[in-house]
């Protein structure tokens, strides 16, 4: 090792022992503290934003099903299939009363004495029928007629997907359908 090597080593070693300015060291410390504080503030903001986002998502997830169920309850509910049993006898329904026109096959049949022809029967109707029954009751030897068993017709309304198409299904007690 020559003199230049030794001189170089000594100069390099002296560089290590040089004192650094205190202002530079203080600046480093202050910068580190400031950046740590800034990072902490950013983490707090990020945590708050994440919390708010999670709360918003949770609120939406709860509010949508609740709103949908509320709207379903508020809307008029139409059953898919409705079964209507007519309380009034078919014979008492008239077209003018807003009811369904009575089909002829559902007319109650009057008990006729043997030998009497249908031609002699009074015209059908509520009043004529009552008069006929009273006449029969007044004749001696003739037992009072058994009360006519009123037939009930059940109507079933079937609603299809098309609001303009409604299927009415009528079925009497004999099982006859139309």
């Amino acid at each position: 090792m020559n003199d230049l090597d030794r001189e170089l080593d000594a100069a390099l070693a002296r560089l290590r022992d040089e004192a650094l300015p205190e202002s530079a060291l203080a600046s480093v410390r202050a910068g580190v503290r400031e950046r740590i504080q800034a990072g902490r503030r950013q983490r707090i903001w990020t945590a708050w934003l994440s919390l708010a986002a999670a709360a918003a998502v949770a609120w939406i997830a709860l509010a949508i099903p609740w709103t949908v169920s509320t709207l379903r309850l508020a809307a008029p509910r139409t059953p898919d299939v409705a079964s209507i049993a007519l309380a009034r006898p078919a014979s008492s329904m008239t077209a003018g009363s807003g009811g369904i026109a009575e089909p002829s096959v559902m007319q109650p049949e009057a008990r006729l004495k043997p030998g009497r022809s249908l031609k002699a029967a009074p015209p059908r109707g509520a009043s004529s029928r009552a008069a006929a029954l009273e006449k029969v009751r007044r004749e001696p030897g003739i037992p009072p007629p058994e009360p006519v068993r009123e037939e009930q017709t059940q109507f079933m309304r079937i609603i299809t997907d098309d609001p303009n198409v409604v299927i009415l299904w009528a079925m009497n007690s004999k099982g006859e359908t139309r």
Partner: peptide, 19 residues
Amino acid sequence: ERLVLRTAWRMLGSREDAQ
């Protein structure tokens, strides 16, 4: 801190960059 600042200063040659 002296070790780090001194090493960075020698490597970069600038006080600002070293800080």
